[in-house]
């Protein structure tokens, strides 16, 4: 049930970086948090979301070629969080690692859909050149519907394939593998903080601004 809800949320929110002027609803922070809320473990979902957000902080939610980083948080949340009882750290780490290749595949699907929208855009342009906005409106509506359907199909495919893989692998993660994954989950937030430091330090640049403030 929560998987279906998450798929719907993902499908609708994925319009955010595609068609509607981005509101950051498609970002991993929001996706991870919503996955956590829907699956009963909000804090862990949000932690997943924060980590993914920091990791991919330099990928803007607009433009044609960038990949849909919110997908990772949504998938990882849905696999590792459902049910009552405490969440295992190894489950979160494993889910995150498994979700990444699906997001990369998702990018190919995104680009394929965008390429095949050419027909719609050509008709829209032809309409405009005759003074009609109808084909453009229709094109945008149709594109949005196709995009949501694409997101739903992608989510269900990734969830069934990846979820099955997750179910297979999780019991086998014992001993040193488990210890390693739990250590990774403990270290990853520091990677997130380091990524933020790296990103912000690039904004500060070569220090000329503070030198001019001080008067050097």
């Amino acid at each position: 049930m929560s998987t279906a809800l998450m798929a719907l949320v993902y499908g609708l929110f994925s319009l955010d970086h595609f068609a509607v002027g981005p509101f950051l609803l498609s970002r991993p922070l929001v996706m991870g948090g919503v996955a956590g809320l829907l699956c009963g473990h909000p804090a862990e979902g949000l932690a997943l979301g924060f980590f993914a957000e920091c990791l991919w902080i330099m990928i803007p939610p607009a433009g044609g070629g960038h990949w849909d980083v919110g997908f990772v948080a949504a998938l990882a949340g849905v696999w590792s969080l459902p049910g009552s009882g405490p969440v295992e750290k190894k489950a979160l780490a494993l889910a995150f690692l498994l979700a990444i290749p699906f997001a990369v595949l998702g990018r190919q699907a995104d680009q394929w859909v965008r390429r095949n929208m050419r027909v719609l855009s050509l008709r829209a342009l032809a309409g405009i050149e005759h003074g009609l906005v109808g084909p453009l409106r229709y094109g945008m509506g149709f594109a949005a519907v196709v995009w949501v359907l694409k997101s739903l199909v992608l989510f269900f495919l990734a969830d069934s394939l990846g979820g099955a893989l997750f179910e297979e692998l999780l019991p086998r993660v014992t001993g040193p593998w488990q210890e390693g994954l739990e250590q990774a989950w403990a270290l990853w937030p520091f990677l997130g903080a380091g990524a933020l430091l790296h990103h912000f330090s690039k904004r500060i640049g070569n220090g000329a601004w503070w030198r001019s403030e001080i008067g050097l």
Binding site: L97, G180, A184, W188, F190, A193, G194, A195, H198, S201
Partner: peptide
Amino acid sequence: FWGTLRLGVRPSFVALAVAGLSM
């Protein structure tokens, strides 16, 4: 981690490396 990113390694690769090396 900031240092590894400064060297130019992609963040997702660092995350994978952390997991791999920990295991």
